[in-house]
């Protein structure tokens, strides 16, 4: 009996495989999933500000425009590939962290188009906690950093100062800056944003001195006071190539990017995303609710939407 059963299974298996391979003879669809149907897919990078953007856009589009929205977690580099292939329709907050891909897809392949500014201004720099800067006021100039290097020593950095570097996918040229300025610091990268935040939270609570790559908007800024260390002013292209960079970071108008086909469709959803524009303060409010007060993104978005009708009404496409 067993024998028969096994044979039957095998025959069935071969049949199914055969059918599958027959159906596989044609050329495959190159554009699968995502933007082909009425569902809009947002690429949502892993930081909380991006979560806030996505939550508000999702809530408004689903309630006001009756469009189904799915936010998929992906960092900038991956998101650009997804925008190119149509697996994602839009990214709401791009920090210009992947210039190579941006050039390739936006300028050369023309599969990704800009969706205008988000309205939020991004700023990256080197920061020390305020309690430390108050005691040592001249630490805020990068030229004086060597004087204080011994304060920042840890077991990881040995006899140099410990510089807490950024998460791998973020725009950065700190390692090169430290080398080019001859700073007595060791660049120790964080493997993930979450890891960096937790470390800073821990050091801040213990009132330890630290020097870190830090940025605004960032929900933790509501809870901790940081002071920026002045770096030489950014001029266009001064960080290229990174090995010779001797300047700080560009103050960034964060930008939206759309899949070209999605943008051309000119649907209500595409119009809405192009219109979507808010301020750093708005975003921090929602992000602070999500991360600081641990509200669910949907609830935080709903709270903001209730309080700011006049802002978001302008985003709705005109009927």
């Amino acid at each position: 009996m067993k024998n028969k059963q096994i044979r039957k299974t095998v025959v069935a298996g071969i049949g199914i495989l055969g059918a599958l391979s027959l159906s596989a003879c044609g050329a495959a669809e190159t554009n699968s999933g995502g933007g082909t149907d009425d569902k809009v897919v947002l690429a949502e990078p892993s930081w909380v500000g991006a979560q806030a953007n996505a939550a508000v856009v999702k809530k408004l589009m689903e309630d006001e425009l009756d469009v189904k929205v799915e936010a998929k977690q992906m960092d900038e580099p991956v998101a650009f590939d997804a925008l190119d292939s149509g697996k994602a329709d839009a990214i709401l907050e791009d920090w210009h962290g992947v210039p190579k891909k941006e050039k390739k897809y936006v300028d050369e392949k023309k599969t990704v188009v800009s969706g205008g500014d988000l309205g939020v201004v991004g700023h990256i720099g080197w920061f020390v906690p305020k309690y430390y800067a108050d005691k040592n006021p001249d630490v805020t100039d990068y030229k004086n950093l060597n004087k204080y290097a011994k304060d920042f020593r840890t077991s990881e950095s040995g006899d140099k100062g410990h510089f807490i570097g950024a998460a791998p996918s973020y725009s950065q040229h700190d390692k090169e800056l430290i080398k080019n300025f001859d700073l007595d610091y060791k660049h120790i990268p964080s493997g993930a944003e979450a890891a960096q935040l937790k470390e800073i939270q821990r050091l801040y609570e213990a009132k330890k001195p630290f020097l870190t790559y830090w940025w605004e908007p960032q929900w933790m800024n509501n809870k901790i006071d940081m002071v920026e260390v002045e770096l030489p002013k950014h001029t266009p292209g001064c960080e290229e190539p990174a090995a010779k960079a001797k300047c700080g970071y560009e103050t960034n108008q964060l930008e939206k990017f759309l899949n070209a086909d999605f943008a051309k469709s000119n649907s209500d959803a595409a119009k809405f995303i192009k219109n979507f524009k808010w301020t750093t303060k708005d975003q921090n409010e929602v992000a602070g609710d999500i991360a600081g007060k641990k509200m669910k993104p949907e609830d935080a978005a709903e709270k903001w939407i209730k309080a700011n009708k006049s802002t978001w009404e302008k985003w709705l496409p005109k009927k």
Binding site: D75, P77, V78, D81, V98, K101, E156, A167, P168, S169, I188, P189, S190, G191, A192, A195, E199
Partner: peptide, 22 residues
């Protein structure tokens, strides 16, 4: 995984390669 939380070295290179698509 250690590369994600400060292990650095090879682990960090893999993580960065992955997240930068490099």
């Amino acid at each position: 995984i250690a590369g994600l939380i400060g292990g650095g070295a090879l682990g960090y290179d893999v993580v960065q390669g992955l997240s930068k698509g490099d």
